[in-house]
Design a protein around this nucleic acid. Structure first.
Lengths: 216, 216
DNA sequence: ATTATCTATAGATCTATAGATAATGC
DNA sequence: ATTATCTATAGATCTATAGATAATGC
């Protein structure tokens, strides 16, 4: 049955199927024959839509990383919360497809977190953050968010609930105390990690919302 | 030539050879036949020393991650610098073997960064950091360090020197200004990222070195 | 003429096991 | 008897290309 009336394959259906396979059967199960079977076609037909396998994987990475919506927020003293929201979005997207974490690491689209760095830099400027800190913030946010979410994605099921596994109160009393004192979930730790970083970056800077912006 | 007088293969030589292959030929080039050839033996002989391929890769990850020495430092107000040194060590180890980054992500040994969490928690306590922040610090440090180093390792050669590639001063003036204002290298950004996080975590806490410790 | 599928297949691997073999250590 | 290698190979893939074929769109 060569050339059907309606195309059997589209780039988006290939990406969706790939993610489905990786999610349910794991990364090792993913191959072009497996993907083709899932779509009800033959493997060579995939080459009509993608140059090669890596192009498919790159599209998968883009799909997963770009799934979240970009939060809207006005510049101002609570500018860090914009980044917290952005980071939580990406974390959720990555954790939804934990099996794909190695793909994301390998095919990381730049401007993953911050779709338009320019716009985000302006947001920082309008919030009164000095220009010399912008690169620190943009670069740090990207690395922290992607990195922390990826490592969290790779943790085994046991390490997900208990943050540090196998702590013996007898031999590790200080650590046991620390764990007992902790009231935060993984998600809250992640969120607070981002917040801490941002507050730390501006720790010595005078943050004042410029008049021109404040009065807009 | 079955059973030589001196064993031809050892776990450490296998790990070293694996790293050498991955470093110079890339991760895709790594296979048991390739590894065996490198060592001058036949592939099945490797199974006498390792249960399977993944056991070799896990050993590779452990070797790379555990290569750095643990800095010694006395507790006190400059406790963050201990963590900065720890993080820089791990970053260097990871960047020395960038091709192995996906392996590290997959076979991440827990207690990668902080060999003994207990000891580190005590260091924090002795430095006057409140117990309720210990988990935030230990968990955050591990995630930030590993994550940021891994994403840095995966960056292409062009993105290494220029932190944000392809910035057009015409259409992206704010970002261009930010880049012009930045005087930090990738390493310094990493270092400062860690420092910012730690200062941020304790931003609202009273840090006082306890008398018992300070007077030791 | 172009497009989107198919069949067939080249060509190259790869992981892991079974069983033989000779050196070693007791 | 155990150890550390080897040969041989099962068994399963996989990626990608060449070339055929029929539907589509001009």
């Amino acid at each position: 049955m060569p050339r059907p009336s309606q195309p059997l394959i589209s780039r988006s259906s290939v990406v969706a199927a790939s993610i489905e396979i990786i999610d349910t059967e794991g990364l090792d199960a993913f191959s072009l024959p497996r993907l083709a079977k899932f779509l009800g076609v033959r493997a060579p037909s995939l080459y009509h839509h993608f140059a090669d396998k890596s192009e498919i994987l790159a599209a998968v990475a883009r799909q997963i990383a770009g799934a979240g919506s970009i939060p809207r927020r006005k510049p101002g003293p609570d500018w860090p919360e914009f980044f917290v929201a952005l980071a939580l979005n990406l974390r959720r997207s990555i954790l939804r497809h934990r099996n794909a974490a190695p793909i994301l690491l390998q095919y990381l689209p730049r401007d993953l977190l911050i779709s338009t760095y320019e716009e985000t830099a302006r947001f920082l400027a309008d919030s009164g953050v000095p220009a010399h800190l912008h690169v620190q913030i943009l670069d740090g946010m990207e690395r922290i968010t992607v990195g922390a979410a990826l490592t969290e994605a790779m943790r085994g099921p046991s390490s997900r609930t208990t943050i540090f596994p196998n702590v013996d109160p007898e031999s590790q009393p200080v650590l046991a105390t620390a764990l007992a004192e902790n009231r935060m979930t993984s998600k809250q730790l992640f969120e607070e990690m981002v917040r801490s970083f941002l507050h730390g970056v501006v720790r010595d800077a005078e943050i004042a919302v410029p008049e021109t912006v404040a009065s807009r």
